[in-house]
Design a protein around this nucleic acid. Sequence first.
DNA 1: TCAGTGGGTGCAAGCGTATACATGAACCGG
DNA 2: CCGGTTCATGTATACGCTTGCACCCACTGA
Lengths: 338, 338
Amino acid sequence: MSITIRDVAAAAGVSTATVSRALRGLPNVDNATREKVKAVAAELDYVISPSASRLASGRTGSIAVITPYISRWFFSEVISGVESILQKGGLDMLLINVGDYQNGHARIPPTPRLKRRVDGLLIISLPPQDPDLEPILNLDMPKSMIGGITQGVDCIAIDDFLAAQMATEHLVQFGHTRIGLIAGGPAEARFVAETQRERGFRSVMTRYGLQEDSMLEAFGRFTIEGGERAMLALLNQAVPPTAVFAMSDEMAFGAMQAIRSRGLEPGEDISIIGIDNHPMSGYLNLSTVAQPVAQLGVIAAERLLAQMFALGDSAHKPDLVNVATTLIERSSTAPRKR
Amino acid sequence: MSITIRDVAAAAGVSTATVSRALRGLPNVDNATREKVKAVAAELDYVISPSASRLASGRTGSIAVITPYISRWFFSEVISGVESILQKGGLDMLLINVGDYQNGHARIPPTPRLKRRVDGLLIISLPPQDPDLEPILNLDMPKSMIGGITQGVDCIAIDDFLAAQMATEHLVQFGHTRIGLIAGGPAEARFVAETQRERGFRSVMTRYGLQEDSMLEAFGRFTIEGGERAMLALLNQAVPPTAVFAMSDEMAFGAMQAIRSRGLEPGEDISIIGIDNHPMSGYLNLSTVAQPVAQLGVIAAERLLAQMFALGDSAHKPDLVNVATTLIERSSTAPRKR
DNA sequence: TCAGTGGGTGCAAGCGTATACATGAACCGG
DNA sequence: CCGGTTCATGTATACGCTTGCACCCACTGA
């Protein structure tokens, strides 16, 4: 019914082998022949059968993007960056949402879906504790990770430790000493970024001899609503913080709302800073440490391609790539009121 | 190197045909045999080769999701809904970003990438004018669309006409007569939703005998920043509107910012209403017409599956499915000040 | 008892491409 | 003029699975 490489070969008066070589740009094909084949193929509206090609060659021409969320801002932004590169490279993108492993939902283990299906893996922020992570990492194919740290795997991320230091330092410079922390979740179930950001936060607190009060820490689950609840908890303390570092802008948004709901004004009464530079942050005047989110995806995808096309010779060495961040001061942070 | 169906067949003492049938749950396989095969397959850690299966059967087991954006809120939300259903149905999701066709970027035509690669198409909000739309629709396979209207194709959307009417009516009921409109873009390059929303807006204006002032219309490109610029343009009019209907919440966010930048207060001085019920809307007290965005994706995917599995008998008839919307009143809209 | 029935199973022919290998022509220097 | 290269091309097999068809073996009812 649909036309195959044989039809093209017949129409062009060559063998299927030549058609295959000509169309794929392989060497050792006469230029005239190649053009002829291309013309015939175009005229017949020939489209190669990926299944057949994959079966015969063993290459799938597609890579899996594994992510715990699709619609959350950070993730959709990363996916968008990844897609732009994969499209350029002519690779199919198989998007796999593994979901939040803590929800206890019966989760379909992604490994079987990857086995013979893709040539490479791009893993976005799977927590080290995620039960599916290890089987995925054991898969023998090129990989790159965003927001993770694994030996022998290309890892792309901002320096979360540093970013948290920048944010915290900013608050300290404004004279704040009682500083709250809005983290994502408890230590048992954290993204690598969370762990690093907490370390960064603590390191600055320690450096300046500021006491860390465990009552000044709350979990916001990286959602607006969670950030609001977390901030309310902090505000309910006997002595609330005068400044708060939220691990993400979205949690900071919720926190700002909580602050206002108590008749206080962010920046005026309580300083708050996040990480991300979310598109809304500018409009809400939230100070933040900006990270180039889509760029993370771009870089990760590029490094993945580099691995796939580094055929032995110019051996690609896996590495940890850190992307720079920038402190952006807005009016949500201000000097401590005396 | 990797184990094939033949290995399983040999180990189980049956033919490859039986293994194939047993593992895929086809009828006419003895129960004991089926269990035996499954056990052997599991033990050998056998994973079917999709390429071979696809080549032999002609089915790809994957569907393409075609979208102009990945990271914008509406789209990522829809994609997330789609993915959840496809994953349940055991189908691969091939995410294809066709990008904004107006940008003039050399855009890779998606059609060749679809031809033999997928069993179905899920098209998200491609404008009728999009040059790639027609070739895509001509592809002979099951399709469903979100936010489009095409005869003979399953189309899923809210009733945009009605939603706009609800929003506009809400403003009118508050006594506003000079009502501005923030649309996405000019008529030549609109999503179906835009056209319908404008019609809904106009129908209410006409019904109440309110004059439409073309100076009270501006384009916000469905971005926050665009909404801000659009609102500034409206505020620069000799007689600015006392109320504004923005076609999306994100544009409304920008508009609120613009209003504030002039020392005015949304709701107090100028009422504004959007469409979406974006997660931030509650926090920004934006009145809006809520639409279940992820649900659109879910329904579209379900209807697509229904088409694919309606094997002739219970013929699936393509239809336009309208999902209900809800007016949500918040403080960004209020009675007109006298 | 026997033709008919239907479920369980095996046989073998594809599915459409990639590629190792063979082939033949053209070209080289000695 | 000739053995050795190099390049363009063809031949033919493999890739791993699905599925139409044939087959066998209970069963069934007459």
